[in-house]
């Protein structure tokens, strides 16, 4: 068995791993109650979210501290279009996605303009908090309580049927992300992570490459947001808060962000913690903080390590080629 595994190509191995995960989840769904299925729905959505974040975090080398923007924005846009403007579901879904990608283009253009990694991270985070404040203050999107409405697809209103919708869409999206990360474009993206200056020498417009990757990542985040809105039958301020962004980052970091399966594992772990912890203690946020600090200090490579990742990436100097080079031009 082991010998066979080592002989096969990486793609076959990945496909086998994915198949095992899919079968395991389906097996659990077949023999469990609605509450467990509900929980699994959340986990699957976060798996998609984490792998979407990882496109630019692990493979693009940027620090997207505000991807919950698109996660929450698409949900709010969808709910707003359906509940307030009375559009049909099928018209609202693509419209919400398009709006999110438009927002991603706008914010990505602004934040990537100065070619400064620190500014990118900080602006993303600031924009996220800004959107969260706006959502909380605006009466028309329900301020504190969010919007609720019947937004599940008409043929899948029960918990299990809805879970199957979420599951299939997420699966398709994750496979798409996998294919995306094998494309020539992703190779250029990885190049921008390793050495931005060199890519500029070759004659590649690195800013456009990053902007494209940012928009792709945001698109998948928005899909995850739509699925989450269907699961919850509503959009709530917590979805767009910086805490959700942080969750996405921690999932990637904990699982191992240079590996495709790392974020999936991280998402599973963090979701369990996030669901169970508030039941036990009031101070769950502090415990989450302690967890973050612990992960950052002692678990820098993540649980699933990729052997092909160059080692210096794990302990890369923040003054190294990527950052300093970009500033000096």
């Amino acid at each position: 068995m082991l010998k066979w595994l080592s002989k096969t190509s990486k793609k076959t191995r990945d496909a086998a791993t994915g198949l095992v995960i899919v079968l395991a989840i389906l097996l659990v769904v077949l023999f469990s109650s609605d509450s467990v299925v509900d929980f699994l729905g959340r986990m699957v959505v976060y798996m998609l979210f984490a792998s979407a974040v990882n496109i630019i975090l692990g493979f693009g080398g940027l620090r997207p501290l505000g991807q919950a923007m698109y996660f929450g924005f698409s949900a709010y846009a969808y709910l707003f279009l359906v509940v307030r403007l009375h559009l049909s579901l099928w018209a609202a879904l693509p419209l919400a996605l398009a709006l999110s990608v438009l927002l991603a283009f706008f914010i990505g253009f602004l934040t990537l303009r100065s070619n400064d990694d620190l500014a990118f991270a900080f602006m993303n985070m600031g924009m996220n908090i800004l959107l969260w404040t706006i959502v909380q203050k605006l009466q028309i999107v329900g301020s504190d309580t969010g919007i609720t409405g019947a937004v599940r697809l008409p043929f899948a209103t029960s918990t299990k049927a809805n879970f199957m919708v979420i599951f299939i869409v997420s699966l398709v999206c994750i496979v798409l992300i996998y294919q995306f990360l094998r494309s020539p474009f992703a190779r250029v993206l990885k190049g921008s992570r390793e050495n931005l200056e060199r890519l500029t020498f070759i004659g590649i417009n690195t800013r456009n490459v990053r902007l494209c990757a940012y928009m792709v990542s945001s698109f998948f985040c928005a899909v995850a947001g739509l699925l989450y809105a269907m699961r919850n039958m509503g959009a709530f301020p917590a979805m767009i808060s910086s805490g959700t962004s942080l969750d996405g980052l921690i999932m990637c970091l904990m699982g191992g962000m240079h590996n495709f399966f790392g974020p999936l594992l991280g998402a599973a772990i963090i979701t369990v913690i996030n669901v169970q912890l508030p039941i036990v203690t009031k101070y769950y946020q502090a415990i989450e903080g302690i967890l973050v600090v612990f992960c950052v200090l002692f678990l820098q490579g993540g649980i699933v390590r990729d052997r092909t990742t160059p080692l210096d990436l794990l302990g890369r100097n923040s003054d190294g080629a990527g950052h300093r080079g970009a500033l000096k031009k």
Binding site: R63, D117, L246, G289, L291, V293
Partner: peptide, 15 residues
């Protein structure tokens, strides 16, 4: 090291 670690660390401290 990688800039992200410092950011997440201060995030955790703030929580």
């Amino acid at each position: 090291k990688e800039m992200l670690y410092v950011m997440l660390f201060t995030f955790g401290i703030s929580y």
